[in-house]
Amino acid sequence: MGTTPFIQIKDLQKDFKSKNDTVTALSGINLNIDKGTIFGIIGMSGAGKSTLVRCINFLERPTKGTIIIGDKDLSLLSDSDLRGVRQNIGMIFQHFNLLMQRTVEDNISFPLEIAGYSKREGRKRAGELLDLVGLSDKRKAYPSQLSGGQKQRVAIARALATNPQILLCDEATSALDPTTTRSILALLKDINKRFGITIIIITHEMAVVEEICSHVAIIDNGVLAEVGKVEDVFRNPRTEAGKKLFFNNTNIVRKMKGKRIIRIVFDGKSSNEPVIANLVMEFKAHVNILFADLKEINEKSFGHMVLQLPEDKDLSDKIIYYLKNIIKVNVEELIDYVVS
């Protein structure tokens, strides 16, 4: 049993049928998520991320395949058993989805009310959770009196009320500014560490995955493009979808004929070396940095750099050889490099 993953997504397919056509939002998704991990699911808008996360707690019933949580196959459960399972899975959303006519405290105790706890128990638990998310002074406030970040904290407290083993986050930071995003992610990380709760983070932002996820799955057009540890997938995205997510959205480089362009990828070992300085010293050659993006993940440096090499083919061959075999970084030649 120890080796069985906590959450198993098995051959999942979801079709949406309308009068005259069928949209296949997801197909052939197989994914295992271990207990206690922070698992990112990333993809472009419309890729099927929300549908996938809604399938995990069966808010959306899969057309094919199933979800197994622990030893429970959700497709075999009755509606009322499913509601019981959902009480054990917290969920937070992009737009917080708080009850606007209830106080913060009554929002947080709502899941307990559903689970049949007394008002007194609910209040007590709400107090504890408000301490946890740092909003003890907002107990009697209404959501309309809170900032976006505070609302998301209340939503997190609410999602944790029943002590769930899983927390689903659908674009939970997409409506927040970068600073607030970071503080919410820090809170999630803290919750994961303290309670060992398995967190699934849906996002379209690479930065979110970098910040807190240990594993990541890339969803593209309703299929699973890549899965793995964040550092592996980040070091070497194998698919177009992966590359687009990891290496896009930055600079504008025109297509340059006749000059070789390479990407070198740092995998957490070599980023401290002054690679470019070494190159210049070694070859007395002019190397143009077209793009550089280096990041810290789990205290290791990752990133990539796009270099334009000298026109001389011999020289550029030597440089590539040097980078690959002496510096030992990952080198990839980019044909027709056009980033927009």
Binding site: N57, L59, S80, L82, R83, G84, V85, R86, Q87, I89, G90, M91, F93, H95, N97, L98, L99, M100, Q101, R102, F110, P111, E113, I114, A115, A155, T162, L168
Partner: peptide, 27 residues
């Protein structure tokens, strides 16, 4: 009533009657 709030209640395992009496009508 905001569809998202209803979705949140569903995600907590609320039954139809709970959603009607504790979400739809109060909200």
């Amino acid at each position: 009533v905001d569809q998202g709030v209803i979705e949140a209640a569903e995600s907590m395992g609320a039954s139809l009657s709970t959603i009607i009496f504790k979400v739809l009508i109060p909200e």
